[in-house]
Design a protein around this nucleic acid. Sequence first.
DNA 1: GGTCGTTTGTGAAATCCTTCACATAACGTA
DNA 2: TACGTTATGTGAAGGATTTCACAAACGACC
Lengths: 219, 219
Amino acid sequence: MAFERAFDVAKKISDSAIHRLSLYVRILEEWEREGRDTTSSEELAERGGTTAAQVRKDLSLFGSFGKRGLGYSVGELADHIRSILGLGRTWRVALVGAGRIGTALLEYRGFRERGFDIVAVYDADPAKVGGCVGERTVRDVAGLEEGIRAEGVEIVVLAVPGEAVQPIVDLVVRAGVRGILNFAPLKPRVPEGVTVRDVNLVMELEALSFALSQDGPDA
Amino acid sequence: MAFERAFDVAKKISDSAIHRLSLYVRILEEWEREGRDTTSSEELAERGGTTAAQVRKDLSLFGSFGKRGLGYSVGELADHIRSILGLGRTWRVALVGAGRIGTALLEYRGFRERGFDIVAVYDADPAKVGGCVGERTVRDVAGLEEGIRAEGVEIVVLAVPGEAVQPIVDLVVRAGVRGILNFAPLKPRVPEGVTVRDVNLVMELEALSFALSQDGPDA
DNA sequence: GGTCGTTTGTGAAATCCTTCACATAACGTA
DNA sequence: TACGTTATGTGAAGGATTTCACAAACGACC
Ligand SMILES: NC(=O)c1ccc[n+]([C@@H]2O[C@H](COP(=O)([O-])OP(=O)(O)OC[C@H]3O[C@@H](n4cnc5c(N)ncnc54)[C@H](O)[C@@H]3O)[C@@H](O)[C@H]2O)c1
Ligand SMILES: NC(=O)c1ccc[n+]([C@@H]2O[C@H](COP(=O)([O-])OP(=O)(O)OC[C@H]3O[C@@H](n4cnc5c(N)ncnc54)[C@H](O)[C@@H]3O)[C@@H](O)[C@H]2O)c1
């Protein structure tokens, strides 16, 4: 069969491999726009800050997309990786929490461009519900479960205060959501089969603090 | 010697270990507020979503902070980890880019609470320069290098468009900054000794997309 | 003081991830 | 068709991180 799907046979793929694939697509798309036809693991590695062997290993987890002696077709490889990452489509996303972070995300074009369409926004604050953020109307979080089902929402972005996280997570999981991006500094509990990714900015700053403390003293 | 500093003898500490330490502090501080005196690796692991062995291993990279048979003193362990991460002080942070993400960050109290004090804000847009965001005045990015030196800025948070990143990074590194938190979807090049941490939200969403594509088909 | 139950700290084993190295496939040339 | 050059795909080696498992340390209790 031409179209390999070796990767859904329950193999374990590391997080860093996925991050690199995500990076490779971005590089390849840039090259597509520049009209480049072919590339090599060497070039991708150079541009992506890794090694050629790593690039080939990452790809080999999912199939073989190149031609020996020639390299890869930029367009085809991009297609393959997009298909691996599930990016050949639009994902329906709901945002919960139209606060500072929430509105920043809403007005960012990069998400829709990359296939993540924020189809609905929810908040609990009566002062915000009914109002507009950008071109979208903020809905009452009371209708969240119903809304998720009605709109076929697949991913929820959570930008609410920490204490509100767990109840909302329970609710959206009940409504069938299996992917959550969480900005609160607190890891919610979810059942098997649901993926949560946390964006914890304070942790990132603390990692910087550690790095600076390590080699700072001698400066 | 009572105060061990075994960790600055050039040992390699993994990123994930640092993230977990950061998590442990947060848990311990919560327990401190609740008035709990002691805890165990078991409890920390349970609460932090890891294993007891992992907790002990993480801590053992830096010293030994517990009492066998008894566990850890909540307060002392928090102190030790804060000291390891360099959190026993305030870090001087500058924000570059007072756009959507930038202003969200500025108005967030969590950073100062955890020792990251945003002492200055810079932007290139003449319409923004001179204006206020929260209680801070936006300064012209032309004065960034000078400002960094004058204010003793140690960490820079970059919330500017991708194409502006590299020049600003070069400039702030020249001014002596060794820690950068970058929101643009593009990894800047920096010399040895400078740490950059990237927050790439699109990559996080793409990782969710992958996870959903993996086990989605059977649903 | 001795014994018991507890929990740490840590070598050793197991697992996961990256790098190495090379057989293999593809193409151009003659 | 044979040969030379190139760059992939992948087992095997090497490193790093996580898990295991247990000796050592501590307090309680008698
Ligand atoms: N702003 C930042 O820079 C920043 C940085 C790091 C982390 N965070 C985290 O991100 C989250 C959001 O931060 P923010 O600064 O945007 O906060 P915010 O207070 O500006 O916004 C939170 C929004 O959530 C809404 N909300 C509260 N409870 C809700 C509920 N049960 N259902 C629906 N909506 C509800 C509020 O009405 C508000 O509009 C917080 O957990 C915060 O800790 C924010
Ligand atoms: N907003 C989001 O939700 C979001 C999500 C993911 C990534 N990002 C990334 O974060 C970065 C900022 O995004 P944003 O949405 O806040 O953009 P924005 O356009 O709202 O803000 C960018 C700000 O940077 C300023 N700026 C431009 N060039 C500058 C320079 N040379 N020096 C100083 N300031 C300069 C602009 O004047 C503007 O105020 C971008 O790289 C974007 O890709 C944003």
